[in-house]
Amino acid sequence: MNTEVKKKKIKRKAQVSKDYCVACGACTSECPIGAIKIVGGVFAQVDQDRCVGCSKCANICPASTIDMINMEEVK
């Protein structure tokens, strides 16, 4: 019997508060993998699948509208 236990790994991902984002684009130019885009000139959107959780966008956001959230991932 396979007794291997699946471990849960906590991953941090960036999440934009769409309602408060001013779409200034500071995060898009800071993201090292280009995982953020401005949607319709209204808000920034993070591609959760590509986000590596480096926090650079959250640190650069001049309006503090990007939070790093914990996401559990089954490994």
């Binding site: 408060y20 001049p62 309006a63 503090s64």
Partner: peptide, 24 residues
């Protein structure tokens, strides 16, 4: 706080946000 913290509760920003979101 952060440089553009005002933008989070700026009345003009709130209004443009509402209009933009509706349009979007």
């Amino acid at each position: 706080y952060k440089p553009r913290s005002w933008c989070v509760y700026c009345p003009m920003g709130t209004m443009t946000q509402g209009i933009s979101t509706l349009k979007y």
